[in-house]
Simulated scan of single mutants.
Amino acid sequence: MRRRSLLLTVPAGLATLAACGDDKSDSSKASDSPSPSASGPSAAPSPKIVDGPLPQVTAGTEFDEKPTVAKGSGEPSKDLAVKTLIAGSGKTVAENDFVVANYLGQVWNTGKVFDNSYDRKARLAIQLTQGQIIDGWRYALAGRKAGSRVEMAVPPTWGYGTQGNAQAGIKGTDTLVFVVDIQDAFNATSSAKGKEVPQDNADLPKVGTNTDGKAPSIEVPKTAAPKKLVAEYVLEGDGEEVAAENSVLVQYKGVLWDGGKEFDSSYANKQLVSFSLQQVVKGWAQGLTGKKVGSRVLIVIPPELGYGDNPPQGSGIKKDSVLVFSVDILAKL
């Protein structure tokens, strides 16, 4: 089981951290609504993919517009039915990628919508990996391109199985219909792609500007650490600005000001991280608010906005440490 990000293990009372559940919670936005997240690894065989039958999308037919989908007619296929309704031209989605998407899900035979991200105005970021997402999504979305709208009908075998999903009102015999608008896809080698911003202040750490998916260097100066939060662009993207209530998908690396030792890194873990800005240390929440998607940001966090005198056990972080981060904002959710 992979190690959780230290950012999400803040001692109680020292940051705006909500309960995050188990290790899977890093890869999808916390929500009371059911999502396509899997309840555990599947032993189901690979499905045969067919092109129908599929219910008609009767309204909201444009990409990223909330769809209205007709009730299923007749018996659904026992195979996985998949159709690209709108063909995108972005990057091709691969197994193990993080997919950022809006989606709507409903039950075939009743037309009951059990979940949709459009009304929440919060896109989903979820990894196409066995045990993280239902198999129907894994097989249906792999090979599709960002910018595509995909409709699928998922039989129980590749959905929630014979146990169904009581929270969503899904029975173990229900075939599920999803419409998915693929916004983008990322993997462990994804980087920010913004415009380089001069790093002229010799009293601040200098961050590498490589965009090859490898961890950037962080050179900490041999000067006194700043007393206040620092959050400056290294690469400035041209995407949407991140708001305090948003969630983000990021790559990051963290080192100590004192000595420059690395203590945490998504690059080293080979795992992107997504989280709400209301679930992380205050320095991250404040430092990323207002920054643009596609950017690399230098954040220097004083102890009172980080871990203070109670750092996570086994982290290698001493009490009252100043923390230095390079953060690539890949997507706003």
Rank of each mutant, 00 (worst) to 15 (best):
V10Y: 06
A12V: 13
D32L: 11
G40A: 12
G40Q: 01
G40S: 13
S42C: 08
P45L: 11
S46C: 04
S46W: 02
P47Q: 05
P47F: 07
K48M: 08
G52Q: 10
P53D: 10
Q56Y: 05
V57M: 08
V57I: 14
V57G: 01
A59N: 14
A59R: 13
G60Y: 04
T61C: 06
E62S: 11
T68G: 15
K71D: 04
K71Y: 03
K71A: 08
K83G: 05
N96V: 01
D97K: 02
D97L: 02
D97E: 07
V99L: 07
A101N: 12
A101M: 15
V107F: 02
W108Q: 03
K112D: 09
D115V: 12
D115I: 09
D115T: 15
K121T: 10
A122T: 09
L124E: 13
W137K: 00
R144C: 05
R144F: 00
K145W: 00
A146W: 02
M152A: 11
A153T: 13
V154N: 11
T157N: 01
T157S: 09
T162C: 01
G164A: 10
A166C: 00
T175Y: 03
F178A: 12
F178H: 15
D181I: 12
A185I: 02
F186C: 03
A188W: 00
S190Q: 02
G194Y: 03
G194W: 03
K195G: 01
P198M: 10
D200A: 15
N201D: 15
D203W: 02
D203F: 01
P205S: 09
P205D: 05
G208H: 11
T209I: 13
I218T: 13
I218A: 06
E219K: 15
P221I: 05
K222E: 14
K222T: 15
A225R: 15
K228D: 14
A231K: 05
A231S: 15
Y233Q: 06
L235F: 02
E240G: 08
A244D: 09
S247K: 09
Y252P: 05
G254H: 03
G260C: 07
E262T: 15
S266R: 03
Y267M: 00
A268I: 10
F275A: 13
S276G: 14
Q278Y: 04
V280S: 07
V281A: 08
L288D: 07
L288H: 07
T289V: 06
T289G: 05
K292P: 06
V293K: 07
V293R: 08
V293A: 12
G294V: 03
R296S: 04
L298H: 13
V300K: 09
P303R: 08
D309F: 06
D309C: 01
N310L: 08
S315Y: 07
S315V: 10
I317T: 07
I317D: 01
S321C: 05
V322D: 10
L323F: 04
S326Q: 06
L330P: 08
L330E: 02
A331L: 01
L333F: 10
L333E: 11
